[in-house]
Structure formats: C-alpha cells, structure tokens
C-alpha cells in the first residue's frame, strides 16, 4: 500500500492507494499516530484509490477517531469505492464518522 501525506490549511490529508489489510495497517497506524503526537488535530483520509480494506484497517480508523475526539479534533473520510463504503456501513462506522463523497466536501467539513 502507498500512503501519500499532504497538508492543506492545517488539515493533514492521507491518501491511501492499494490495500489496507492485516499486513499494511501497522504502517498506516504508525503514520496517523505519529501525526497526532506531533499535534495534528484535523485529518482527512482520501480513499479514492483504496481498493480493499479489512477489519485491521477499520481498527486503525476507530483508534484514531477515538484519539482525535479526546483532543477535540476533526476526522473526515472521503471518496470511498463501493466495496470500501459497504464495509464501513456493515461495521456501523458511518454512524459516528463523517463519510463524504468528494475531497471538496471533506475540506468543507474539516
């Protein structure tokens, strides 16, 4: 998996490419928590080029959401493919996480 990290107006953006599974999730977890440690409070994860996710990836998202909430941060997910969106819905994550269709909407919500 490839993780591209950029910044726009104090909002940290992670663009994921490929597969977020049991093998690749630890890398993503490290990147997110390093950023939180460095003081990041507003984040967007762009799923546009993510083809696959398993519960290992969901766990990282849940941990990060809980952590950011404690520091009054903002976490928005955007541009999911059908399969990825369905996995988030089946897991009930769409009830506590803002999931929007486009990067523009994500920036407005952040």
């Amino acid at each position: 998996m490839e993780i591209i990290e950029t910044k726009q107006d104090e909002i940290l953006i992670f663009k994921l490419k490929g597969r977020l599974d049991s093998k690749t999730s630890p890398d993503f977890e490290k990147k997110i928590f390093d950023a939180i440690e460095d003081g990041a409070t507003s984040m967007i994860v762009n799923f546009e080029e993510l083809d696959y996710i398993s519960s290992a990836g969901l766990r990282v998202i849940l941990k990060a959401t809980k952590n950011l909430k404690r520091s009054d941060g903002r976490f928005v997910l955007c541009s999911m493919k059908d399969y990825v969106k369905e996995v988030f819905e089946i897991s009930g994550f769409d009830t506590f996480l803002p999931i929007v269709s486009t990067m523009d909407e994500a920036l407005i919500q952040s």
């Binding site: 398993s54 766990r59 849940l62 809980k66 089946i90 897991s91 009930g92 506590f96």
Partner: peptide
C-alpha cells in the same frame, strides 16, 4: 454492539461480525 456511542465502541470483534 453497533448501536453504542463512539466512546463505548470496542476495537475487537469486527472481523467475525463482517
């Protein structure tokens, strides 16, 4: 439990649920 709040939401058990 999928109905609980974010704070109460557990990290484990998701794989079996899926």
């Amino acid at each position: 439990d999928l109905e609980c709040t974010l704070e109460e939401r557990k990290i484990g058990g998701l794989g079996i649920h899926l």
